[in-house]
Amino acid sequence: MQKFFSNKKLIILMVLIIVTLGLLAVTVNIRDKKNTPPVVQQVGNDVVSVVGGVFAYPTNAVKNAISEFSDLYDTYSENKRLKSKIGELAQNQAKLEVVQDENKKLKQELKLNSTLTDYSTVNASVLSRSPSSWQSYLTINRGQTSGIKKNMPVMSGNGLIGRIVEVDKVSSKVELISTDNELNDKFAAEIAGSNNKNITGVVSRYDSASGDLVMENVNSTKDIKKGQSVITSGLGGLTPRGLYIGKVYGIKKDNYGMTNSVYITPAAELRNFTVVTVIKSSVSGER
């Protein structure tokens, strides 16, 4: 016994390996199963993020300025394109108001308090992005105190960008939709405007080579056309119905030729934004 434990370096190595794997296993489990990390970690992350805000605001200002310059660059062609849409938009808006009003009244009639399409929003600004290849997280400056919960979807200007994976008191982490992660990154989706047929599936993968989102488990691919828009279907979880994900790009068979997957060009330009919107669904699902 004396001899076995006499090699100090060996023991240090052993303890090190046990501690490493233990720590990792425990924290991964906490992240996956608990709604919030331990209080110590929350407070630590909050302090770091509050101080980080001091550095983040000037960076965001610079980022905004740069993106304004690049916007300026293609203003002319964009203006042309947008002008053609303006007339249509005003008409749609008027129609939307009428329909929303009608919808509200009908809901009152039916005594429906909230449906899958109802949600409220919280705006937050981005503090940093993780320098990590597989945890592509954004840190944002809103947390539990603003009513944010784990698994809530997050949008930027145009479309869905990800979901909340960790909530601290005044900050939280957003896992981007472009993460190549088997476990968490799934959104129940449907293809809108397909002749009253309900085409549903799960946006479950990100193809990093082409930059497309991949929708799997699609129930029928018969009527899908390129350019149709894909929205969240609101089935299960904390995601409301009707959040815009992107446009259909094409259909491909999987490696075995068994199932079809729909490739989606994401709507959110995941580069030029500094503010995100967290969606709080009014109807909570099972979780």
Binding site: N45, S49, S128
Partner: peptide
């Protein structure tokens, strides 16, 4: 680890 990775031990 805590701020960027969300898991401690790396």
């Amino acid at each position: 680890d805590s701020y960027y990775y969300g898991i401690i031990g790396l």
